[in-house]
Write a protein that binds this DNA or RNA. Structure first.
Lengths: 156, 156
DNA sequence: CGAAACATGTATGTCGCTATACAGTCTTTA
DNA sequence: TAAAGACTGTATAGCGACATACATGTTTCG
């Protein structure tokens, strides 16, 4: 579906005559959307979407942290983070433990089953990123990241 | 909110030790999200979100086209496009006209008020893109677009 | 100590999009 | 011409995210 707009953005190399929805900004958002969709698609075999997979991998790596901290790290709101934890907890992939030092807080930790699934998440991620980077050199990736960060910094 | 994850992605220049949610792909999606939010924010003064603004500008430029074609051009589904048209039509910014050649089709056209608002949309877009590009050369933008397209093409 | 200010996690409502199914309308083809 | 198929726009349900409001618990400081 997005491919039609995708191919039309190919004309944005000369920008003067390109309408707003065919410019670099649109290409950027379109690329992000395609990547997110493909992530979701590949994680579907694990019955996870991208948010759940990221949460699981994060918790598996960093262990018992509060939901608020996880939410900040993952760039979602606290409510969304709570929902994702609810879902993963229902499937026994993570578990909530009370924080001994602060009774408001739940510390989220990975279970054995969650750790196992997390390994598969990381594996899929590695394969996907390799696919994504085909034909793109390390230097180009670094410049891409640098440009993206500079664009973001222009918004503060 | 996304800024915390944003600043953490700044460490992704050396990728080997960076966890999955801090890599270039995340930087890309994060940048897209920030751009979308800022677009919404700037169009809010016109009581439009990004989708509505894009639709309005598109219709103002290309005139009477079917909803399906507009949906394809804008990269959304037909149902979503219909909803956006509903909204803009309620506010008398666009109007639906029957296609004389095909009774299934509504041709969407801009009204005088819509054309006027569309000019403001374009103006805001120009200012925003100038802000976004501060300190980024034309050559860099072209390379950015090229890299993004190559990444997208790797997914087909 | 005690009260105000703050932090955490949850519930609720809203928003925008997708996917699906549908009725109405062409278009193709036998 | 008739039947099969394809296309258009819409209704509906579902998902995932956000903002807001709230109850609960904690910290600060007079």
């Amino acid at each position: 579906m997005a491919d039609s707009s995708t191919s039309s953005t190919a004309t944005s190399s000369h920008e003067l005559d390109a309408p707003p929805w065919q410019r670099v900004e649109s290409t950027l958002m379109s690329a992000a959307s395609v990547i997110r969709q493909e992530y979701d698609k590949r994680f579907a075999e694990l019955d996870l979407n991208l948010s759940q997979a990221m949460m699981l991998a994060y918790v598996a790596e960093f262990g018992a942290e509060s939901q608020t901290r996880i939410a900040d790290r993952l760039g979602v709101g606290r409510a969304a983070a709570g929902n994702i934890v609810d879902n993963l907890e229902r499937r026994k992939l993570v578990e909530r433990q009370p924080d001994p030092d602060d009774r408001r807080v739940w510390l989220v930790n990975v279970t054995a089953a969650g750790k196992e699934l997390s390994d598969k998440v990381i594996e899929i991620d590695i394969v996907f990123r390799a696919d994504l980077r085909k034909g793109i050199s390390r230097a180009e990736r670094q410049q891409l990241a640098s440009l993206l960060l500079r664009i973001q910094e222009n918004l503060n």
